[in-house]
């Protein structure tokens, strides 16, 4: 028996919007720790890892570990039927092939349930090693989204370089080149507007902008984004989900031939 009640139902809608461009089908894993997912895109270039901790739910019952295969577009179709202020409850019985999403309006005058068929999904679960990153950049998520969008109109790839001067995003395409440098800036009115660069040593890596743009679909989940870089490792782009957990994207770099 599984029953997860999330008062801030709109959060689940945002989580789906943040993943469905990248991943079609995925297994949602439910355990005492929380509601989680790990999935790669079809070309195995990017990986998304989601964790919504059990403490973040108003009610969390998960009698035994359960893995539920869902098509994210179908799940999104169902969640779109929930009002933005609705409370969403996810329910499933052991051994059944469906999941139920229950939507309650804030004043309890409308209750809907949508039952969705589950799928069998063969997915590889990867072990993500703990790593020391050479550079960690924290910046406003909207700023990062703007940079990725702007640069993708010029080129297909971005070189992200961190030096003590700041973080530089560079691209080149048929029409020309572009460089955007963000310097560390802690002297802002609000902490979420700061750009903070923790650098152990300079690092420079190349990534496909198409994937980074997909990651920025998570912008509504968090005011800030953390970008962790090390040479010879996938970049980690993390959006913290307040009081609940995170959505992390890993993107394999482009390597000189």
């Amino acid at each position: 028996m599984l029953e997860l009640r999330l008062v801030q139902g709109s959060l689940l809608k945002k989580v789906l919007d943040a993943m469905r461009e990248l991943v079609n089908d995925a297994n949602f894993d439910c355990s005492a720790t929380g509601f989680s997912l790990q999935a790669m895109d079809s070309s195995h270039v990017a990986l998304v890892a989601l964790l919504l901790r059990s403490e973040g739910f108003e009610h969390y019952r998960c009698d035994r570990n359960l893995s539920m295969g869902m098509n994210l577009n179908n799940m999104s179709k169902m969640l779109r039927c929930a009002g933005n202020d609705d409370i969403i409850t996810i329910k499933a019985d052991d051994g059944t092939d469906s999941v139920t999403f229950m939507f309650e309006s804030p004043n309890q005058d409308k209750i809907a349930d949508f039952e969705m068929k589950l799928m069998d999904i063969d997915s590889e679960h990867l072990g993500i090693p703990d790593a020391e990153y050479q550079a960690i950049v924290r910046m406003p998520s909207s700023e990062f989204a703007r940079i990725c969008k702007d640069l993708s109109s010029i080129g297909d790839t971005v070189v992200i370089s961190v030096t003590k001067e700041g973080v530089k995003f560079s691209t080149a395409g048929d029409i020309g080149t572009a460089n955007i440098v963000c310097r560390q800036n802690k002297t802002v009115d609000k902490p979420e507007e700061a750009t903070i660069i923790e650098m152990q040593e300079p690092v420079s890596l190349t990534f496909a902008l198409r994937y980074l743009n997909s990651f920025t679909k998570a912008t509504p989940l968090s005011d800030t984004v953390t970008i962790s870089l090390s040479s010879e490792l996938p970049v980690v782009v993390e959006y913290k989900i307040a009081e609940m957990g995170y959505i992390r994207y890993y993107l394999a770099p482009k390597i000189e031939e």
């Binding site: 195995h44 072990g127 090693p129 996938p234 890993y250 394999a252």
Partner: peptide, 14 residues
Amino acid sequence: GGKQSTITAFFGQF
């Protein structure tokens, strides 16, 4: 822009 690597080249299967 170089050759695109894959996630599975970095992270081992569980």
